[in-house]
Design a protein around this nucleic acid. Sequence first.
DNA 1: GTCTATAGCATGATAGAC
DNA 2: GTCTATCATGCTATAGAC
Lengths: 234, 234
Amino acid sequence: MITDFESFKQELSLSKVEICRELYRQNRETIRIKNEEVAVGNLVRLIDSTLRLTGLKGFEAMSLRDLCADAGFSIGGLYAYIRNKQDLVILIQGHGFLITLRTLLTYTGQATSPHKKLTNAIMAHVFLSEIMQPWFYFSFMETKSLPAPQKRQAIAVEQKVEDIFHDVIVQGIEAGVFNDVNARLLASLCKAMMQDWYLKRSKYARQGVDATQYARFLIGVVESYLGIYPANPQ
Amino acid sequence: MITDFESFKQELSLSKVEICRELYRQNRETIRIKNEEVAVGNLVRLIDSTLRLTGLKGFEAMSLRDLCADAGFSIGGLYAYIRNKQDLVILIQGHGFLITLRTLLTYTGQATSPHKKLTNAIMAHVFLSEIMQPWFYFSFMETKSLPAPQKRQAIAVEQKVEDIFHDVIVQGIEAGVFNDVNARLLASLCKAMMQDWYLKRSKYARQGVDATQYARFLIGVVESYLGIYPANPQ
DNA sequence: GTCTATAGCATGATAGAC
DNA sequence: GTCTATCATGCTATAGAC
């Protein structure tokens, strides 16, 4: 059971290096560097810079020269890790999917009641997107420009996330503990609400709202609609 | 009082030609065409194509050659309407702001109670973004790449929209007809929920949900959280 | 007012020295 | 493994014919 961001972060312990090591092993054919330690270290800087610059100007507007300057690469060195610019997107995208689905399924699986599954899923999603905000932002913004197979994959993952929410809501309705609402629409709404946390994070920072507060607020809204605390939502 | 999309659409009656005529008059210095009828007709095609292509690939990825081919312009002809590619963004952006704020203030002003103001505001925003979906999508996606003054303007308008919601919620709380919730956070959440209608419209189309259904659903969620219909949200 | 032709430049990608 | 130098391409923007 998740209660706040700090404990979630410790439990998950996703270091950049570990993620990039997995990434390196997944993409061994396209990466021409033999030494794993060297490659992993460079991948960390490469992906950091790509996410940062893309967040500022968009992927198309980021030139590979900008990227090299920011990451401390030469243009030739960069091409030891990718075959072309598109490969950067594929590299970044593939990994986040695994983590997202794995995390959501872990935390909904842990819980016993539909109510706890739902609150766990919301918390897990908000907290994960807090840790990996640049990735979530990138993924949202750049999906439309992906080549067809990657685009299909991205849409499928988003659908899968919504399905997780949908199924939990249906379970609760059938068990008689939730109001009889439109589960499909509420699942989409959950996604939309969680999405804003990584799309407009600076706005919430300005309001002085942190990830735990935001997640609890969303949970309050959803609970009141489902009739779980019908009297007085905080 | 708004009840459904069709009546809203008739009342608003925003034709493309009228919008582009206003646009032409606003940007007379940069547009080098004297004949208003000719200019307005071309602006309609120009903006239509820009919104369409940008929606597919993003603004940066859209070349002016693509745009000319799509809109039936020559590259030279295009430059009679803009001084550079950025001007296209400014041209498109400025107008939508006026319409959005004007519409929201009109419909909240019409209503008497905070509850009606709130439902009117949600309906007006969802319906307006239904009519001008490509514009809302464009505005969301391209704001980050705008030059500083336009970016400030875009953020200010978004803030103003949230303020309208915030103020109505506070009114309701002070009048004792709404639960005592975090008004700032709920206003942001309203924006996030309405936002998904133009960001992910095709998803909702797949679910068979139309604008009226979506707006009523959002209203139901917000009402239940505010304790207006505490018993049984539809 | 609209077109074609082209200048001038920045980009993605490669070749080959070290 | 990493660098510099360079190629070919496609872009925005302009000049000048019609």
